[in-house]
Design a binder for these strands. Structure first.
Lengths: 209, 209
DNA sequence: GTCTATAGATCGATAGAC
DNA sequence: GTCTATCGATCTATAGAC
């Protein structure tokens, strides 16, 4: 019983963090949902900040090695098609996050979005410190597909693409409400990604055919 | 002296809200920065939630009538070019927000991004209630430029586009750090928009030429 | 490793004098 | 309209018994 207290906390925390954001989720809410004692969070994780990192680490440790593998096998193709095929090759690794936890893929992206503008850079620094090499590899692969686009232009386009993804998932609850109200359509992560990849591929590749 | 207390509060609040987010900004921090008494916020605005709405209302009341005017004069052109020209026509109204306040355009977009995933829909409901007509007009104009794209596909692309914009500005502090470190390049709102418009125009228009 | 109890800080909001 | 003072609620974190 004692052994899975950490996991119970992680599971409860990620759900609440994704729904409400980090700041607006209290340790009391987390421990109540996990059905564990309030003090156990600090015993197992030391602090709330560490808990936030631990929640994301569970996903990054699964995702990043797969991305490294995909990038190592990746064949460079230039232009929109190349960007799109590169991005599509990242989809299966992303989808395996739902093996970590039910709805894991959606949770992960939501958490990423929350982290980007709620933690004042703490989370970003944590990511770049622990997984910076994988991120750099992805940027290099993208650059190889678009040799005519210069560095800082590619920098912009990549962040617009991240914004599209992260914002859409971070506000997916709002979007779900809108989409279901307007179109009576269910919103799930796979649908978002399949709509997203062509969008950002076009945007990233720009005017190149 | 008494007369501009409301304005002092609004100015201090918007700066802190944009920097730190709504939840993480206390009324004490706001009143300290505004150099007014703590109790004056509740006297003038009633609550923190009302203050948040008042901060955004200052910008919406300037922006939305201009967007209505632009849309009324807009000539429909289909395809990527039409989308791009439509979006470009929204840039001047956006830029006038810097007349409301120094750096007003950037502040507004940052606040919008914060509001979208920090206020649990309160702000979105406020916007749609007070300015929903203008938003609907913009969507209709976009649809006219892309008659071959169906409703829910356009819905997705539009939200990706909003995500690109809002995320980029909401995390502009982080992006500024990265950009200046990597490319020694200053990041300002005009630069973001000029990079963004082609990106989202391509993305929204999709495969249509 | 789990619990109770509580320290210590901070929050939004308000009562009431001026 | 502005101020002091404070209420009552909430928060993270920890000490110490078991």
């Amino acid at each position: 019983m004692a052994k899975d207290t950490k996991v119970r906390i992680l599971n409860a925390a990620e759900a609440l963090f994704a729904e409400q954001g980090f700041t607006q989720t209290s340790m009391r809410a987390i421990t109540a949902r996990a059905d564990v004692n309030l003090a156990s969070v600090n015993y197992h994780f030391g602090s709330k900040k560490n808990l936030i990192q631990a929640v994301l680490k569970r996903y990054f440790d699964v995702l990043m090695p797969q991305i490294d593998t995909v990038l190592a096998k990746h064949n460079v193709v230039t232009g929109v098609g190349g960007v799109q095929s590169l991005l599509m090759s990242l989809v299966p690794p992303m989808m395996t996050l739902s093996n970590v936890r039910p709805k894991g893929t959606a949770l992960f992206v939501q958490l990423l979005g929350r982290g980007y503008n709620e933690t004042q850079g703490h989370l970003r620094r944590f990511i770049m410190h622990d997984y910076g090499k994988s991120v750099a590899g992805l940027m290099a692969a993208l650059h190889a597909s678009l040799p005519e686009v210069d560095d800082h232009e590619l920098f912009w386009r990549l962040h617009f693409a991240i914004g599209s993804f992260v914002f859409s998932m971070a506000s997916s609850q709002a979007l779900t409400e809108i989409a279901e109200a307007d179109f009576n359509q269910d919103v799930d992560i796979q649908a978002v990604i399949l709509h997203l990849v062509p969008f950002v591929s076009q945007g990233i590749a720009g005017h190149s055919a």
